[in-house]
Structures are given as structure tokens and as C-alpha cells.
């Protein structure tokens, strides 16, 4: 193994890792927004919204994320959507992971015992008040871990945007392979950096999970 090479190129990889982190953070935020809206739609008493939420979930979970990304980035201009690669990456991955998060958030909300809603409604609270003060605080505790699983998948999923040449970790590895012919070292380095990002995120999720449980 060419340790010298690794030491030489790793600052470039670090820069790429920063981009992967940025991509992950923005994607996670967009995913959470889409997931919350999706869950709200899925749980809405309006038939049309309910259907819209269900369609969103099955569409985006039922097709490869890579196809969605290509459709947005390469197919977008054809219908007047001009995005640079980074923007397309964030939007494509964010909306995709949002479909998974929709199910996570909805699952947490409906697994709060229905007696809780009944007790709140019986006291005279509106359905919104019951949701806001009784159900969501309990659902939030239940969703931290499964959302962590979604975020883990999302971080690994950012590798896909290499395919539309965003200069993140995976793309950087490929580029250096082109000039060094050392795929083993380059992919090992990229993999190690992914692992660090995922490990730290995982610790953060565990910490948050413990915190919301104790209070």
C-alpha cells in the first residue's frame, strides 16, 4: 500500500469530505422538511392530501435515487429546470430521503397510543392542540433513532452525486484514480472518511436519543 501517496492526497480528500458533509446537512434539512410535510399530508383528513402524500412516498421509494437524480439534472433543462450539479444533488437526494422520512415520522406519530389522543380530546383540546402538546412530543422521542437510520442512509447516498460530477468524496476518489492508478488506496481513503462522518453522526443521534428519553 502506498502510504506516501495517501499522505500526499489526503488534504484534497478532506476538502471533498467537507463538501460531502455540506451536502449531507442540506439534504437532511430538506429531507426533514419534506418528511414532515409528507407525514402531515399522509395523516390529513383531506382525501386529496392523503393521496398526494401516499403518491409521493411510493413514487420516490419505488424508483432508484440515481434515476431521480439524472432525471432532475439531465432531464430538468428540457423542461426549464436549470440547476447546477450541487443544487440538483441536494434537491434530488433531499426529496428522495424525504419520502423515507415521511414514513418514519408518520410511523412514530401513529405508534403513540390512541388513548393519548382520546384523553386530550376528552379534555376539550382541538385535534391540533392534541397533536402539538400531547402526540408530537411523544412521537419525537420515538422518531430520533429511525430518523438516524434515514440519515445514515442519506450520507452514504451522497456518493450518488459523483455521477453528476459534484466534487465530493467519491468523485474525488475517482478523479485521483485517473491520475494515480491506485484505486485501492483512493477508495480506502474515501471509505475511511465516510466512516468517520457516519460514526460521528451516529454518536450525535445516540446522544440526542438519550437526551430526549431522560427528560
Amino acid at each position: 500500500m502506498d502510504i506516501d501517496l495517501i499522505l500526499r492526497v489526503y488534504p484534497h480528500f478532506l476538502k471533498a469530505a467537507i463538501l460531502t458533509i455540506e451536502l449531507s446537512v442540506l439534504t437532511a434539512i430538506l429531507g426533514l422538511v419534506c418528511g414532515s410535510l409528507g407525514a402531515a399530508a399522509r395523516l390529513s383528513r383531506f382525501q386529496a392530501l392523503h393521496f398526494l402524500g401516499a403518491a409521493y412516498v411510493s413514487l420516490f421509494r419505488g424508483t432508484p435515487a440515481l434515476i431521480q437524480l439524472f432525471l432532475l439534472y439531465f432531464g430538468g433543462p428540457q423542461i426549464g429546470i436549470q440547476l447546477d450539479a450541487f443544487e440538483a444533488g441536494v434537491i434530488g437526494l433531499g426529496v428522495n430521503i424525504g419520502a423515507y422520512m415521511t414514513e418514519t415520522i408518520r410511523g412514530a406519530i401513529i405508534s403513540v397510543h390512541k388513548g393519548q389522543t382520546e384523553a386530550a380530546r376528552t379534555l376539550g383540546m382541538s385535534s391540533w392542540q392534541a397533536m402539538r402538546y400531547v402526540i408530537l412530543p411523544q412521537a419525537f422521542r420515538l422518531m430520533v433513532r429511525p430518523l438516524g437510520v434515514n440519515i445514515n442512509a442519506l450520507i452514504k447516498g451522497t456518493a450518488l452525486v459523483a455521477a453528476i460530477s459534484v466534487v465530493e468524496l467519491t468523485y474525488t476518489a475517482q478523479r485521483y484514480i485517473g491520475s494515480t492508478y491506485k484505486p485501492f488506496e483512493m477508495f480506502l481513503l474515501a471509505g475511511a472518511l465516510y466512516m468517520v462522518i457516519i460514526y460521528i453522526t451516529g454518536r450525535g443521534i445516540s446522544w440526542l436519543d438519550r437526551k430526549v428519553r431522560i427528560q
Partner: peptide, 8 residues
């Protein structure tokens, strides 16, 4: 209620 349904 039978099962109290206090807000935990």
C-alpha cells in the same frame, strides 16, 4: 379511562 391515559 381504564388505562389512565396520563401524558407520560
Amino acid at each position: 379511562f381504564q388505562h389512565f391515559n396520563l401524558f407520560p
